[in-house]
Structures are given as C-alpha cells and as structure tokens.
Design a binder for these strands. Structure first.
Length: 246
DNA sequence: CACCAGGCCGTGC
DNA sequence: GCACGGCATGGT
C-alpha cells in the first residue's frame, strides 16, 4: 500500500501544511518554505528526515496493527501508510490548544491568522508560525480579535509557561502529561496530541468525539492497553478511518 | 432555528 | 471522584 501523505499532513496531526493546486504540499517550517510532492522528497533534507520520522519502520508497524483485528485491518487498508510527525513543541502546543471544541478547517485558519499577525515573512506571502517570544506581547483582546474565542487566555497562559516544554523529554508519559496539564486549556486529550506529535510518545491515545464513537462501537470491552505497543499509530488509523466513513 | 467540531474549566454534589 | 453547563466561532 502506498504512502498517504495527504492524510499525514492534513489529517489533524499538523495545521502547518497546505495542498497546492498542482498537488504538492507546502509549509513554513524551520525558517523557510518546504514544498514536497512525495515522502521521497524528505529523505535528503535533515530537517524533514526528522520531521517525518523516517528512521521508524512504519511498514512493519502498519502490518502488525492490521493483524490485530478486523476493524484495525479495515482502517489500515483503507487509509494507506500514515506517519506520526515530529513537530516543534511550541507549534504543537498552541495548535492543539486551538483544536479543542473546534474543527480542522477552522483550526487551520486560526493557525494562519496567528502566523500573519505574530510571525514573520520568510517568503513573499508566507509567514512562519510565531515563536513564544514573538507572541509574548499578545493581549487577550488582540487574540480574540483573531477569532480564537475562549482559547485566548489559554494561549496567554501557555506563553507564560513555555519553559515547561523544554523539560518534558526525560519524563515518563504520566509525569510529562501532568506537567503539560498545568497549562490552562490543556487536558488529557490535548496533552496526548502534543506528546505524540511533538515528543515521539507512541503510547499516547487521544480520545476525542470521533474516537469515543469508535471505542463505543467497536471496542466496548477493551481499554487502551489493547493497542499496545502501537497506541498512537493505531489511534491515528482509527481516527482517519471513522471520519472517512462517517 | 438547532447541532457540531481532534475539550476543558468551573461548579456542585 | 463524576456529571453537567458554558464557552467563541463558523459550517451544515
């Protein structure tokens, strides 16, 4: 089966990527614009090599997930190969604070507005997502004016507690989650997304409104340990699948 | 008009 | 500990 780059980039892990009219994908990351057509384009670039987690064997993981049960097999076969991105901590933190009680399309729009307002232009018309320092002068009124709504104070709290993000790598999942949740607007679901998509914690298992449906309907008598050791990747396949058939 | 979206917070019990 | 209402905004 083939690489599903669209699902990896646009399926809710990241809000940095745009699909161009010619079918390529582009994003402002690492102080430049990246444009790629396929995963092969990432192999020669050190930043993208890490970003796309190219050293992990996703074919093997995918095969083992598919062998677990019929639901996972259907999810894996219908989706193709998806990866878990290795994103910047700050970008992931703000992105998933924005994500609560929101939809992917609108999250992407808010991400763009924050970039245009507080980031800097690395190419004509292309703005970086702002660093915590670039956002440090933001006010609640300003943020609400961009449309973030009730998430404005959460973003301000994250700005003030940004140093937390540099302390999580050495911690256990539970301790890292606990520390992330001291930031307002970060609960278990948002924390799990940050830890998976930015800290390579493959044992996270985000449960949002879509996953509640999947678990209730297909795994009523199971708990998360059932998906071990592929909790995060299994979740991502199930998330993509349930949305595609709903 | 209602209900929903990659939920969380504050309150009440 | 768990249940519940509220929450900004835009789409259906």
């Amino acid at each position: 089966m083939e690489e599903n780059l669209r699902e990896t980039l646009l399926g809710g892990q990241s809000f940095s990527w745009r699909e161009e009219d010619d079918g390529s994908f582009s994003a402002v990351l690492n102080e430049r614009v990246y444009r790629i057509r396929s995963i092969e384009d990432a192999a020669s670039d050190p930043f993208l090599h890490s970003y796309f987690d190219l050293d992990y064997d996703y074919e093997k993981a995918r095969a083992e997930i598919a062998a677990k049960d019929e639901t996972l097999r259907a999810a894996v076969e219908s989706t193709g190969l998806i990866r878990l991105l290795h994103q910047d901590h700050w970008i992931a933190t703000i992105s998933f604070i924005l994500s609560q009680n929101n939809n992917i399309k609108r999250i992407t729009g808010l991400y763009d507005r924050l970039s245009r307002r507080y980031g800097h232009e690395v190419e004509p018309g292309r703005f970086s997502f702002p660093s915590a320092e670039e956002m440090a002068g933001a006010t609640e009124e300003e943020l609400r004016g961009l449309g973030v709504g009730f998430r404005a104070p959460f973003i301000l709290d994250a700005i003030g507690k940004r140093d937390i993000l540099e302390t999580l790598d050495v911690l256990s999942y539970e301790e890292a989650e606990r520390r992330l949740m001291t930031i307002k607007g970060i609960g278990p679901k948002v924390a799990s997304c940050i830890l998976i998509f930015s800290y390579q914690r493959r044992d996270g298992f985000p449960i949002d409104v879509w996953m509640k449906k999947v678990l209730a309907e297909y795994y009523p008598d199971k708990d998360v340990s059932y998906f071990h050791p592929y909790e995060a990747l299994s979740q991502q396949y199930l998330f993509s699948w349930i949305r595609s058939i709903s």
